[in-house]
Computed example of a mutant assay.
Amino acid sequence: MKYLREMIGETLGTFVLVLFGCGSVAVSVLFNAHQGLMQIALVWGIAVTLAIYLTRHLSCAHLNPAVSVAMVFGGRMPIARLPIYIISQFVGAVTAGLVIYGLFSPSIAAYETAHGIIRGTADSIKTAMLFGEYYLSPGSTAVVSMHLALIAEAFGTLLLVLMIFALTEGCNVGRPDDGLAPVFIGLTVTSIICLIAPLTQAGLNPARDFGPRMVAFLMGWNDAAFPDQDGGFFFVYIVGPLLGGIVAAVFVVRILEPAMKTPPCCS
């Protein structure tokens, strides 16, 4: 089957990324297992690193629709492959969401009972957050409008895609060894989460957000899984990362790569 290895790579890699990443959020909320943003951010960075090492020989390990779209705009991947990559990424993310729900369903129910949460009501966002991000999250002290949240997600994804291009671009002689690139991409994710998670919980990846969020919707959270009636979910966590990835790709191709290929003035 054409593109089979790419399908396997993107599905498996996105599954691992979302399983470990969302799993860290779940155990933090349900069991108070992690203390502070940095610990969760580190787990997400490790998840990204492991997922890339696992699958980059199969599909170059995009694991994110925003990265795949950026690769098309940057001329690194033909557009014909894009639907296969995006579908596989969403399949992997949904599967991870289902596994997380299967593992923690009894604990989620117990948590809801202990805290008087009725699933499907507005208050159940507190447990729906195990699956999807919320830029208007309960208990947050951040003041965030939909427009600011969109900009934050776009900017965070721009930084991520910029570093991916820089760490894998042959003309960047300052990049680390190819074998270490996944580690630095994971550290980039950790750093970006530490920066923008207080505003949007740092999605940076439409598949990572929509896949588990859809699982929450199907498992009884209903409107609490998609609480923003103004389209905030779509614009912030889908459009924002895609725009950030596209801008990063255009910047790299039009400005950064030509600058890297120009001999330094001191040579």
Score class of each variant (00 low, 15 high):
G179A: 12
L148P: 02
N205T: 08
G232R: 03
F226E: 04
A202W: 07
L242R: 03
E169P: 00
D178P: 03
P198C: 05
Q229R: 09
V247F: 15
V250Q: 05
D230T: 14
A224P: 02
I164N: 03
T190A: 13
A149Y: 13
V252Y: 15
G174R: 10
R213P: 02
A152E: 07
P241D: 04
I246Q: 05
G220F: 05
L162Y: 15
P241S: 05
F251C: 10
V253F: 08
I238Y: 12
I185T: 10
M214S: 12
S191A: 15
L256R: 03
N222A: 11
L150S: 04
P176E: 09
V239K: 04
C194T: 04
V161P: 08
R208E: 06
L150E: 03
M146N: 03
L158W: 15
A224S: 13
A259H: 11
V253C: 03
T157A: 06
D209H: 06
T157Q: 05
L159V: 10
F217V: 02
W221Q: 00
A142F: 14
I238N: 09
V189Y: 09
S191G: 11
L218P: 01
L256W: 14
R254A: 13
F210Y: 12
F155Y: 13
P227M: 11
V183R: 00
V236R: 01
G232C: 05
G179P: 03
G244S: 06
L204V: 03
E169R: 00
I151R: 05
Y237H: 11
L150A: 09
N172L: 06
A207V: 00
V173E: 09
G211I: 00
V144W: 11
T200Y: 12
I185F: 12
G244R: 08
L180Y: 14
V236H: 08
P258A: 11
L218D: 00
